[in-house]
C-alpha cells in the first residue's frame, strides 16, 4: 500500500526533504526550462528584428503595475497561509488561502480586460511578432495562474480535511503549493519588465 512508501510526511534523514518537496522542485526545474525556451525565443526574435516596439508604447503599464502588486501580495498571503499552519491555526490558514485565491482571480480579471482591450483595437497574436510573443507568454503564464487557483481551491475546501488526520503531511502539501505559486509570481516578475517596460 502507499503507506509502505517512506518520507511522505517526514523528511528523509540524509537528504533532509520529503518526497513531495523534491518532486515539486524537480517540476519547477522543468518549468524553468519551459519558460527559458520561451525567453530564448524572445531574445532570438528581438535581436533579429529590424525594429521592435517598446512595450510601454503598446501596452498599459499602469494595469500591469497593478497586477504585479496583486501577484506579489498573493505571494505574501500564500506564505502566511503556510505559516498559519505551522502555528496550528487552521481558520487563519483558510482566511489567507481565500485571500490568495481572490487575488489570483483579480489578476486574471485584469488580464482579461487587457486582452479584451487589445482585441477591440484589432491587435491579435497575428498582428506582429511583438504581439505574438506578448499573447503567448502572458497566456501561458495566465494558464499557470489558473492552475494555481484550481490547486489552491482544492486545498482550501476538500483538501483541507487531511489536516485532521495528517497535519504534518497537509502542511507539507501547502508548502509545495506555495512553492509553485511563488514560482508563478517569479515568472511574472521577469515578464513584467521584459514585455511592458523594455
Amino acid at each position: 500500500m502507499s503507506s509502505l512508501i517512506r518520507y511522505i510526511s517526514r523528511p528523509h534523514p540524509i537528504t533532509g526533504v520529503t518526497n513531495a518537496k523534491l518532486g515539486t522542485w524537480c517540476f519547477l526545474a522543468s518549468e524553468v526550462m519551459l519558460f527559458g525556451a520561451l525567453f530564448s525565443a524572445y531574445i532570438l526574435l528581438r535581436t533579429g528584428a529590424s525594429s521592435w516596439p517598446r512595450g510601454s508604447e503598446l501596452l498599459s503599464v499602469p494595469l500591469a503595475t497593478f497586477n504585479t502588486l496583486v501577484l506579489i501580495t498573493s505571494s505574501v498571503t500564500m506564505v502566511m497561509a503556510w505559516a498559519s499552519l505551522m502555528m496550528k491555526d487552521l481558520s487563519k490558514y483558510k482566511r489567507y488561502m481565500g485571500f490568495t485565491i481572490l487575488l489570483a482571480l483579480t489578476f486574471l480579471v485584469v488580464k482579461g480586460f487587457e486582452y479584451g482591450h487589445k482585441f477591440e483595437h484589432h491587435h491579435f497574436p497575428s498582428t506582429s511578432t511583438f504581439y505574438a510573443i506578448y499573447f503567448t507568454l502572458t497566456g501561458l503564464h495566465g494558464l499557470h495562474v489558473l492552475g494555481g487557483v484550481i490547486v489552491n481551491t482544492y486545498f482550501l475546501l476538500p483538501g483541507s480535511k487531511l489536516w485532521e488526520t495528517e497535519p504534518e503531511q497537509f502542511t507539507g502539501r501547502i508548502e509545495c503549493a506555495g512553492l509553485y505559486w511563488h514560482f508563478v509570481d517569479l515568472v511574472w516578475i521577469f515578464l513584467f519588465p521584459v514585455l511592458y517596460l523594455l
Binding site: V17, L22, W25, M33
Partner: peptide
Amino acid sequence: KKIIFWVLVLTLVFFLALL
C-alpha cells in the same frame, strides 16, 4: 537543503545555455 540546490544549479546552467 543541498539536494535542492544541486537540482537548481544544474537547471540554471542549462537554462543559461538555452537562453
